[in-house]
Design a protein around this nucleic acid. Structure first.
Lengths: 216, 216
DNA sequence: CGTCCTGCGTGCAGCTACTGTAAATTTATT
DNA sequence: AATAAATTTACAGTAGCTGCACGCAGGACG
């Protein structure tokens, strides 16, 4: 039952990958030209030379072809490092973790960039993308909890530990969304790493403001 | 052409409101019983005794009937107060602003609560709700900028001012999402106001952590 | 009161996303 | 080459959603 590695390099797998890539590219190109709403699934199928049914076998939904492969969950190695190697900077480490996952998800920066452009200008896709991030947050929260425990913080002694984990993840998500938007629309001049550090610093500063002077 | 106040109290308007409320309640009740996915628009129409076409005249989309009236944009008075009366606590003030808008949007807490429950357990609705928040953030960002300018901070002297506004709004959105979820699922024992303060404090604490001790 | 007008509800025809099913085609295995 | 397993496809059907044109009732006006 376990001895069927399902070759990644057979003719079968190669064709599959080609078809999928073709459909994704076609979808992206069509949407950038005509706008997401004006692209029908049938158009994409024509361009990719498959039946509509096959399209749905691949992506399940129209949006799927535009958003790319679903959940950018980090690799185990990264996860372990995050859980064990972490210091006090949960926020920074989380952002780094998510970023790494996003990067090795789609090697082609060109695709990635046009995809982001499309998403940014299409409310429906933007919403769906945010939903994905939210779903990802679910599992990240567990990770953070794990990390907290590794650091010796138990739920018994800190009642709000789970809340703290969830909030940390939520904040990280905010930083990611902010950075993405700035990167793909605002024309940030600098490396992604800089941008992320900049975003985090900004978040810290704003969160801190108003802390010393509580309202009347 | 512009001088038609469209009475809010005529028989017409009352009927309208009744129909809409009826449909919303029916939708909510049906979804809580059968699950969102298993409720068809036709079912809601039957329960509300209107044609399908009328349903879409009211809500435009199936989700609309479940999410309630679209954008909880604050009243002008609140807005003015936010822009002018603000101190350094942008985050807190923003959260207060959004909360106020949400509250006087739906006077009935029962409806509000069951709606939240449904949304929370329905990924599709959750996503759509997030999209709404995102759209709202667009205009809130402008507000924050306005406030900054009122406080004498000009874009000329602080290049990142727009970024700062957007980040503030994004963070406020995070706090709101966190609070909502905690309130409607986690069973928070206390007043909404307390919960919000708690959330903000938590966000501040996490953002601050790791600030003093940069990674090696 | 009667009349006109305008807003609103409705039926209908049609498009698009999406799914189940079973047959046809292609690739892998022996 | 024969068989098995994986994919693709055609076909039919459901559900969300829209444009259009008709009819009726609420409301303004004389």
């Amino acid at each position: 039952m376990t001895s069927k590695p399902t070759l990644d390099d057979g003719l079968r797998a190669r064709k599959r990958a080609a078809t999928q890539a073709g459909l994704e590219q076609a979808a992206l190109a069509l949407a950038l030209e005509h706008g997401y709403e004006n692209v029908t699934v049938d158009m994409i199928c024509d361009a990719g030379m498959v039946s509509q049914r096959t399209f749905f076998n691949y992506f399940g939904t129209k949006e799927g072809a535009f958003l790319g492969t679903p959940p950018p969950m980090p690799a185990d190695a990264e996860l372990a490092r995050f859980v064990r190697g972490g210091g006090a900077d949960v926020l920074g480490d989380l952002v780094g973790l998510i970023t790494a996952a996003l990067v090795d998800q789609e090697p082609d920066p060109g695709i990635l960039r046009s995809r982001r452009m499309l998403i940014e200008r299409t409310p429906e896709l933007l919403g769906r993308e945010n939903t994905r991030i939210t779903e990802l947050e679910e599992s990240l929260t567990l990770l953070v909890l794990e990390r907290f425990r590794t650091q010796g913080r138990s739920e018994e002694f800190t009642p709000g530990l789970e809340d703290e984990a969830r909030m940390a993840v939520t904040l990280a998500g905010s930083v990611m969304r902010f950075s993405m938007q700035k990167w793909f629309t605002g024309g940030f001049t600098g490396s992604p790493g800089e941008l992320l550090r900049h975003s985090i610093a900004l978040a810290r500063r704003i969160a801190a403001a108003g802390n010393e002077a509580p309202p009347s």
